[in-house]
Design a protein around this nucleic acid. Structure first.
Lengths: 98, 98
DNA sequence: AGAATAATTAGGTTGAAGGCTAATTATTCT
DNA sequence: AGAATAATTAGCCTTCAACCTAATTATTCT
């Protein structure tokens, strides 16, 4: 059988997103943002997790790099928002193999 | 804000499946099985990956534990099949946060 | 029986991910 | 200015995932 080609998309976008979603804390952040239905402050998110604030920061950073959340700074606070659109890449992949 | 509860489902099923899908080789195995549209032998799958056979075996084992593929043995060959049904758990989670 | 084939197990290495505490930065409040 | 707050950075440790080669098992073929 011929080798099945790996698309460029697979090498980049899918990788980031699926890796980001591989950790329970990061999925939980997304659940929180979703349930909240609007922006959340960093501290508000950190409260929801059972790990230290620096660890939370790390997870948020991972999610941001994957494009799953957006951040904007307001004074000394960081305002996070869920990027629901980016979650579609998961659906796209699932459709590809379903 | 009150802590958002973590469902039992999150602790178990989602974890296994999302972790399994976090690796490009494992996603590629699923893509192969999907494109093939039917069962594949272990060696046939190993051919498609750019890692050694033992490594492939490991990935297949991970996918099996996550319930994403099923295996049956026939003589000295292992026959793998995609469990499309199990992929629905991803859709379920996406729906939860969309 | 012996060779070949399909796949796993064993054993070990390496790098990255996840976690923590302590220290630091940036901003706001009094 | 000084205290308090929000969050990050720095530094370090530990665990685990991914990978390889070599050896072994199980089955089939001649």
């Amino acid at each position: 059988m011929k080798k099945i080609a790996v698309s460029k998309k697979e090498l980049g976008e899918y990788e980031e997103v699926f890796r980001a979603l591989a950790h329970a804390s990061r999925r939980h952040i997304i659940v929180c943002l979703s349930q909240k239905g609007g922006p959340m402050l960093g501290g508000e998110i950190a409260e929801q997790l059972s790990c230290s604030w620096p660890t939370t920061t790390g997870h948020l950073h991972t999610l941001e790099k994957a494009g799953l959340v957006t951040v904007r700074k307001q004074g000394r606070e960081q305002i996070y928002e869920l990027n629901r659109n980016r979650l579609k890449i998961v659906e796209t992949w699932i459709d590809l193999v379903s």
